[in-house]
Computed example of a mutant assay.
Amino acid sequence: MSTPRGRRVTMVAALAENGVIGAEGNIPWHVPADFQHFKATTSGHVLIVGRTTHEGIGRPLPDRHTIVLTSNRDWRGEGVDVAHDITEALELADRVIDGREEECEVMIGGGSVVYEAALPYADVQVLSEIPVSPEGDTHYPEFDRRRWSEASREPRDGFTVVRWERTFGCGGS
C-alpha cells in the first residue's frame, strides 16, 4: 500500500545489529555522520514522527514539514501538524505535498510505534546499520525480507546505509 496518490513513503532509521533503535528515550550510540545522513535524506520532504521522538528532538527540524503522530488528542506542538493515526498522517502529508511544486516524499522518522504503523504503507526503507549491539527498550519492527529487495549497500564512516525497496505491492510487511 502506498499513499492514496501514489506518493513514495520512505522509512528512515538507524538501528543496531540487534534491532535496537533506542534505550530509555535516547539513542544508545553516537554517530554524527548518521545524523547528517538523516538530515540530508529527509530535508525538503514531509517528515512524520511520533510525539516522543518529536519531544526528544525538542523542535521541528528545519527544511521539513513535520507531522507529529500522537494518540493524545489534546496534544499540540508549535510549528508542526498533528495526526492521531497513520492514515490521517498520510492523508495530511498528501495535502501538504499537493501544495508544493517541487518533488516531495513522505519520510517516516520514528519511533518504533510509528515505524510499525507505517511499514504496510512504505515503499522504501533507508536503514543505517550501526555495528553495535546495545541494550535497549525500543526496536525497529521486523519485516518480511521476501517482500523487500536490497537495492544498495553503502559503507560510511561508522555505519552502513542499506536501501530496501518493496518488491510486492500487495501490502504487508
Rank of each mutant, 00 (worst) to 15 (best):
S2W: 01
P4Y: 11
R8E: 15
V9R: 14
A13P: 06
A13N: 07
A14Y: 05
L15W: 00
A16K: 05
A16Q: 01
E17W: 00
N18M: 10
A23I: 11
G25S: 09
W29L: 11
H30Y: 08
H30D: 11
H30K: 07
H30F: 10
V31M: 14
P32H: 05
Q36I: 10
Q36E: 04
T41S: 06
T42H: 02
S43F: 02
H45N: 15
H45Q: 07
T53W: 07
T53L: 13
T53V: 13
H54A: 09
H54K: 09
R59H: 10
R59D: 08
R59L: 03
P62V: 04
D63H: 03
R64S: 04
R64W: 08
T66V: 14
I67D: 02
T70H: 03
T70M: 03
N72D: 14
W75E: 04
G77Y: 00
E78F: 00
D81W: 02
A83G: 02
H84C: 00
D85G: 04
D85I: 01
E91V: 11
D94F: 05
D98L: 10
R100T: 01
E101N: 06
E101Q: 11
C104D: 03
E105R: 13
I108K: 11
I108S: 09
G109I: 02
G110D: 04
S112T: 11
V113Q: 12
L119Q: 02
A122Q: 08
A122H: 07
V124F: 02
Q125T: 07
E135C: 10
E135K: 14
G136Y: 14
G136F: 12
D137Y: 11
H139T: 14
D144E: 05
R146N: 10
R146Q: 13
R147V: 14
W148E: 12
W148C: 13
W148D: 14
S149L: 15
E150P: 10
E150S: 15
A151G: 06
R153E: 10
R153Q: 07
R153H: 07
P155L: 04
R156M: 04
R156A: 08
D157C: 00
G158M: 07
T160L: 01
V162T: 05
V162M: 02
T167W: 05
F168E: 15
F168D: 14
G171I: 00
